[in-house]
Design a protein around this nucleic acid. Sequence first.
DNA 1: CGGCACATTAAGTATATACATATTACCCAG
DNA 2: CTGGGTAATATGTATATACTTAATGTGCCG
Lengths: 250, 250
Amino acid sequence: MTVSQTIAGANTELSLHQRIVNEIEGRILSGEWPPGHRLPFELELAEQYGCSRMTVNKAMAQLARTGLIERRKKSGSFVIQPHAQSAVLEISEIKQEVEGLGKTYRYKRASREMRKATSDDRALLDLSASGKVVEVTALHYAGERVFCFEERLINLAAVPEAAEETFADTAPGSWLLQQVPWSAAEHKIKAVAADDDIASALSIPPGSACLVVERRTSMQGTFITHVRLTYLGSSHELVARFTPSQTGQI
Amino acid sequence: MTVSQTIAGANTELSLHQRIVNEIEGRILSGEWPPGHRLPFELELAEQYGCSRMTVNKAMAQLARTGLIERRKKSGSFVIQPHAQSAVLEISEIKQEVEGLGKTYRYKRASREMRKATSDDRALLDLSASGKVVEVTALHYAGERVFCFEERLINLAAVPEAAEETFADTAPGSWLLQQVPWSAAEHKIKAVAADDDIASALSIPPGSACLVVERRTSMQGTFITHVRLTYLGSSHELVARFTPSQTGQI
DNA sequence: CGGCACATTAAGTATATACATATTACCCAG
DNA sequence: CTGGGTAATATGTATATACTTAATGTGCCG
């Protein structure tokens, strides 16, 4: 431990390039360096911090990846104009969500059907050829109350193992996570009035406001599954957060 | 242009460390390297790619930041267990949203009031001391139709300039973007049935399902503004995407 | 046989160096 | 004054090197 480290205090045990990131981020967030402002050149910062250009470069590259600055050769680095607000939406599994509320979770399959893909199915899964699909509908309970109604389509061409699975006891969401570890997903979130089917499934009056989350999961370009989750509207909310520094960590 | 570059084809003009990121990402996404799998050591990868350890390190650091792998000294790097799905929700300004639909955008202020913060206001903005706030309600049109109803609170302690602004012609959202360039935000998304006020503002029958987005924007710990946007439910949907590679880019 | 010092290993950080690339600025010829 | 070629410049990428740090394993000695 050198003397300078002891003096530094709080910021100790942070790498230099991370400290540079933090300080620049602070200046941008505080408005000291407003959008459009040109930050010092790498060599200038290197001199200020008494380090090499490579170290500064590492910091600047990180800031550029998180979208706080834009870098132009020969011109320098500039604070970016805030465009669209983007926020990170954490979509946890329903079981965790329910247990997070302190309720006991229960799963109940309502129906399961295997069939040749209809034109509706093909639209939802972006299928060109006519393959087979499995459709599962299920209920997720929080305590005695229905929490969420699930309607799911699984593309059998992508997940042939789904033909053997009844989903009587396992929720298709967590089952699929075992089969297909990582994927890209596309979500649509909307509010709808409950139709008669949904109303009876959720035991609410027809016409009630419900939050609907539709997710389409793909892997390497082909769609695996499409799911529509219908929540009892007033009792459920999604939370999304935006913090510039963690952008990296989606 | 060397011969090898010409042969490479599609992947040309990608930096080596980015190519390494892509290939490893592919193996993880395809399931070839399942969660928990230990990837080759930096030195092994360096040899495979015929490059230095630094280059591999850059790639691995990026994968670690995006949350695809976890790195442990002396042990190696491991594919991470899939936790919660997180998706990036792009929340653009309403004007852009409307124009993206090919409709003409129009803004109309409904009311504006400056007052000492009530206890409700203080709860929404996390105010401890009793300061002043401005409350603005406004309508956003898409063509002839109301698209969205806005109810906004602005913390005057954080943005004193708001006292002088009437918001008769400028939407508070875009105005605030000028004043407070960068910030963190927290969103809640839910479905509600329109009460009488909302119903008359949006000219829909009371009880209709509406999508509500509530956003609380903070800077350096203090809350700037709270806004509730009420959309005509069935006509509007939010879209969120998850792609592992871009996690960095919020 | 148990515990602790020490060596080993893999990643983390930082540096100097080198060359590539994109873009701007400048200067000179027409 | 204008256009185009060229030099200067800031970032981008890659390398070899060196030292640090944390975790794991090993072996020695009481």
